[in-house]
Design a protein around this nucleic acid. Structure first.
Lengths: 249, 249
DNA sequence: CGTAGATTTGAACGTCCTCAAGTCGAGTGG
DNA sequence: CCACTCGACTTGAGGACGTTCAAATCTACG
C-alpha cells in the first residue's frame, strides 16, 4: 500500500505519442501545431506508468523529476501535516497534470494516489523545460495550466472559507460533472471514485456530514444516491443552492 | 475606490533596474547571473506603478497584460462570487508576484488591492515569456514561483479544511512573521496591514472570532495585541498550538 | 472635537462534529 | 450457493465551536 509505483517495473517502453492521443485536445499539448506535436513526440521522452488502485504515483518528500499527465483512471492528491491531519487537495482525471507542486522545491509536496487502476504519461521535467524553450506555444500552454491550477485553488479557498456544507457538496458535484462532460461522459450520471471520507477531506467536512448532505439532496429531489452511484436530476437546483447561498450578505 | 490605478498616470518612466534592486534576492530574478540580470534590465520593459492605499492594482475581469512584483507596500488579493461572498486568497509583500491568475484566461481572476500605499514593478507578460525563452534560469525561476504559489495554496486548504480558529490564526501569524523576517524585519513585532475582517476572510472566520482569538492568545501569554500592533512573546507556543492541534486523530 | 469605521466583548443560537449503533455490499471460504 | 467478515455508508442524539446579533469602546482623521 505504501510502496511507490514509480519504482516498480511498470514503465511501458511502448512508443507514446501525443500526436495520436485522444486526450491531446484537453491535455498539455493543446494548441500545438502538428509539426510541434511531432517534436514533442520525439524529444519529450514520454513513457507510461501503470498505477494500481490504492497505490501511490509519488509521495511527499520524493525527489521531483517528472510531472504526470493522467491518461486513464482517477487520482487524488493530498497533504498530511505532522500531527496526522490529512487534506485532499484535488482529484485528477484524464488529461490533467499532476506533480507541479514539486517544481519549487525539487521535492514532491503532496501524495498522489490512484483511486482506480490508472495510467499516466511520464513527462520528465527537464525535457519539458528544455522543449519549452524551443516551442513557444508549449511554454505558453504549460504556464496556462499552472495558472489555472492556481485559480482552481482559489475557488477551493472560496468554497472552504465561506460556504456551508450543502453548498460545498453542490459545488463539488457540479465541478465533477462539468469536467466529465468535457471528456464526453454523461453529466447527470456519475460514479464517484472516492469515498465519503475523501470527499469530506477535500471539502473540509466529516464523512458523516457528506453522507447526510447526500441524503438531504435526495430528499429534496436534486439527485439520487446509491452508494457511489449518483444520478443528478436537478443540476439547476444545485447551482441555485450555491448562487443563492449568501443572500444575507 | 473602484477606479483602477493601472489607468492612472502613475507609471514612472524612471529606469527600473532589477540588477540594482534591494529585493533581487527574493524576487523574480533570484539566481540569475549579473549578465542575465542586465539582460532583464534591458529587455523586460519594467516600469513602476504607484497604488494608493485602498485602490486596486487590477480587478476581476480586467484584461491580463502583466504580472506585478511588489516593491513597497502590502496587497491583498480576493475573489468575489456572484452572491457577494468575498474570499481573500492571499496577502502579498515586497518581492512577491501578483497577477499569475490571469495567465490561463488572459483575464484577471482576482482583485488586487493595496492595503497601504504601494509601488509595484510592472512586468509585461509577453516580455517575460519572450525573455524566458532565452534565459533558462529566468524560466526556471518563474516556474518555481508558480509552483510555490500552488503549494502555498495547498497549505491554505489544509488550514481552512482541517484547523480550528486558534490554529488558523496561529498559522497565519507565524507565516506572516516568517516572511517579514526573511525581509529583515522583526519577527516578534508586527503591525498588521489588514483589518480583522480581512484576516477573517482569509482564514474562513468571522471578524468577531478573529478578535476573540487574539484576546484569548493575549490572555494565554502568547502575544500582546493592541489593535493592529502585535507583539509575539511566545512563537513556540503558537507553533505548538498548530502541531498539537489534531492529536485525537 | 466630532464622526465614521474598526475593534472588543457578551449572550443566544445554529451548523457541523463526535460518538455510537445499525445497515449495506463486495469479496472470501466453506 | 450461502454464510461470514470487513469496510464503507447511513442515521441518530448530544455537544462544541463558531456565528449572529447587539452594544460598548476606541482610534483615526478631517
Amino acid at each position: 500500500m505504501d510502496q511507490r509505483v514509480a519504482k516498480l517495473p511498470h514503465t511501458s517502453p511502448t512508443t507514446v505519442v501525443c500526436s495520436g492521443c485522444n486526450l491531446r485536445e484537453i491535455c498539455l499539448p493543446v494548441g500545438l501545431t502538428m509539426p510541434e506535436l511531432l517534436q514533442v513526440d520525439e524529444r519529450m521522452v514520454t513513457s507510461r506508468h501503470r498505477v494500481a488502485r490504492g497505490e501511490k504515483l509519488f509521495q511527499t518528500g520524493d525527489r521531483f523529476e517528472s510531472v504526470y499527465a493522467v491518461w486513464t483512471g482517477f487520482f487524488k492528491t493530498c497533504i498530511a501535516s505532522k500531527d496526522g491531519r490529512e487534506q485532499v487537495t484535488g482529484f485528477q482525471m484524464g488529461g490533467e497534470l499532476i506533480g507541479m507542486d514539486g517544481i519549487g522545491t525539487r521535492r514532491h509536496e503532496v501524495d498522489a494516489v490512484a483511486l482506480e487502476d490508472a495510467q499516466v504519461c511520464v513527462i520528465p521535467y527537464d525535457d519539458l523545460e528544455a522543449l519549452s524553450l524551443q516551442i513557444n506555444s508549449l511554454q505558453q500552454q504549460f504556464h496556462r495550466i499552472m495558472s489555472r491550477e492556481i485559480v482552481r485553488n482559489h475557488s477551493v479557498m472560496l468554497l472552504l472559507g465561506s460556504m456551508h456544507a450543502e453548498e460545498r457538496l453542490a459545488a463539488f458535484l457540479l465541478n465533477l460533472t462539468h469536467r466529465l462532460q468535457a471528456r464526453g461522459f454523461s453529466s447527470s450520471s456519475v460514479v464517484l471514485r472516492m469515498s465519503r471520507e475523501e470527499i469530506g477531506s477535500y471539502l473540509g467536512l466529516k464523512l458523516e456530514t457528506v453522507s447526510r448532505t447526500f441524503s438531504k439532496f435526495q430528499a429534496e429531489g436534486l439527485l439520487f444516491v446509491r452508494h457511489r452511484q449518483i444520478q443528478i436530476t436537478d443540476p439547476v437546483g444545485l447551482q441555485q443552492l450555491i448562487d443563492g447561498g449568501a443572500e444575507a450578505d
